[in-house]
């Protein structure tokens, strides 16, 4: 490691390393952030959920948008894998099916950035016991 020579250098290093702990800071105020859960059961992974998840993480990071991306278990829509659930704070969660890289990109551009829903939504067909 080279020595930090000035305040400007320190600030530069700070921005560089911030991304490493950003995930932890996001966890601190998770209730205000958009959350994307990627269904990562066997069926999801076999259909490419890992690639979808990586794409979300990389693209959102690249664009500098704070979104919590986590994995979750099978949502039951095995025919439509990879599936994701997107929650905007204060709104009902929305589930998308067949989310490949291109679809993920579309979701980021439209739903995450503009709050406009895109095609491919799986309608809610169950009620959950906790709400």
């Amino acid at each position: 490691m080279n020595k930090i020579k000035s305040l400007a250098d320190l600030k530069k290093l700070q921005t560089e390393v911030q991304s490493k702990i950003k995930l932890r800071e996001m966890g601190d105020h998770s209730e205000t952030l958009i959350q994307i859960k990627v269904s990562m059961a066997t069926c999801g992974i076999a259909s490419g959920a890992k690639e979808t998840m990586s794409h979300f993480i990389e693209e959102l990071d690249h664009q500098g948008i704070d979104v919590i991306v986590t994995q979750t278990g099978c949502m039951g829509y095995c025919y439509a894998e990879p599936t994701i659930e997107l929650t905007i704070p204060g709104q009902q969660p929305v589930v998308y099916g067949f989310v490949n890289k291109a679809k993920a990109q579309e979701i980021i551009e439209k739903h995450v950035k503009l709050n406009e829903m895109v095609d491919g939504i799986i309608p809610v067909n169950y009620s959950s016991i906790d709400n």
Binding site: L7, L10, L13, Q14, V17, Q18, K20, I21
Partner: peptide, 13 residues
């Protein structure tokens, strides 16, 4: 580096 990422040493700078 994790400390620096949390505004560490910014006050000193």
């Amino acid at each position: 580096e994790e400390y620096i990422g949390r505004d560490g040493y910014a006050a000193l700078g």
